[in-house]
Write a protein that binds this DNA or RNA. Structure first.
Lengths: 155, 155
DNA sequence: CAGTTCGTTCAGTCACGATTGAACACTCAT
DNA sequence: ATGAGTGTTCAATCGTGACTGAACGAACTG
């Protein structure tokens, strides 16, 4: 696999993930699975992407925790397999949403530590909080949109 | 400035920015200006945040390019001043939106490089593209929401 | 003109997270 | 029990981007 459009797609997804502050390898795993949505064995991931088994372990586990990957096992086969979970993109949005909520509440707590007589300052922090609220709300709307049309598996 | 809730807020915004993959210093500058929305001189930023002039230069210029900061000058004063621009949060959303659009079009191009007979593969990439579309649409909606109530300056 | 005061640039350093690879523990087959 | 096959962990390395500080040029002052 070299220089094919498929390989380029995998690399691109790696870069996209990296751009989002996540490990490049995680993106490449996803890329591979988008191209061909079948279960990949632990070993196959290591070989196909030319990455160490340690990296396969850490990244699959992380993606699993994110709800993007599902670990499947096959009776009679000792290897672990991984495949994209049902709504991988929704899952990512969900994680992002959680992060935003977390940050929002941290900011809100910081706001409350500002002396109450600094009304103007507090009000300005409120603007920031309101910003997070808008982001949260619209992200939720986006999510519900996915729930309606579940990436339409069948017409 | 040490250990005050205000200082903690500034540091927190630094961490938030860092968490978004941006320089921590940029976040601290923003934090400072949210606390007190007045123009800060180049030198004042350097001293208040204990950062080198080089860092002030790079980060203010970056934030300026992002539309988050506005550089203002005062007649008779050779220093540059910086303040938050009108809709700093909208500006950030706007930049994020541009980034999403960019990524989306890259993915779309990658998709078109996949041989046309791999219909199933293409269809799966389409799901990803559709995901970006939803994110883009909802971000736009969020932005228009800000346009309606401009951080409400007056009740 | 020389001397200041600015902001920018850039080579060098530093910090941090990603990645590797070896050691490890566990399971299964014989 | 031994050995092969598995996934995890972790110390060490690597890569990247943030940050510094010195050198610089431009704009002003006298």
């Amino acid at each position: 696999m070299k220089e094919t459009p498929e390989a380029a797609f995998v690399e691109q997804l790696g870069l996209i993930y990296q751009g989002e502050g996540m490990p490049r390898i995680a993106g490449r795993i996803i890329g591979l699975m988008i191209l061909d949505a079948r279960p990949y064995s632990f070993d196959e991931l290591s070989k196909a992407l030319k990455i160490s088994r340690g990296s396969v372990s850490t990244n699959t586990r992380m993606l699993e925790r994110f709800g993007v990957l599902t670990r499947v096992t096959v009776p009679g086969d000792r290897q672990d397999y991984f495949k994209l979970s049902k709504q991988p993109y929704s899952q990512m949005l969900e994680r992002q949403l959680e992060k935003t909520r977390r940050v929002r509440s941290q900011v809100a707590e910081a706001r409350d530590r500002i002396p109450a007589d600094h009304a103007v300052t507090r009000a300005r922090i409120d603007d920031l909080i309101r910003f997070y609220d808008v982001v949260t709300d619209t992200t939720e709307k986006a999510l519900s949109q996915f729930a309606e049309s579940p990436v339409r598996k069948r017409g």
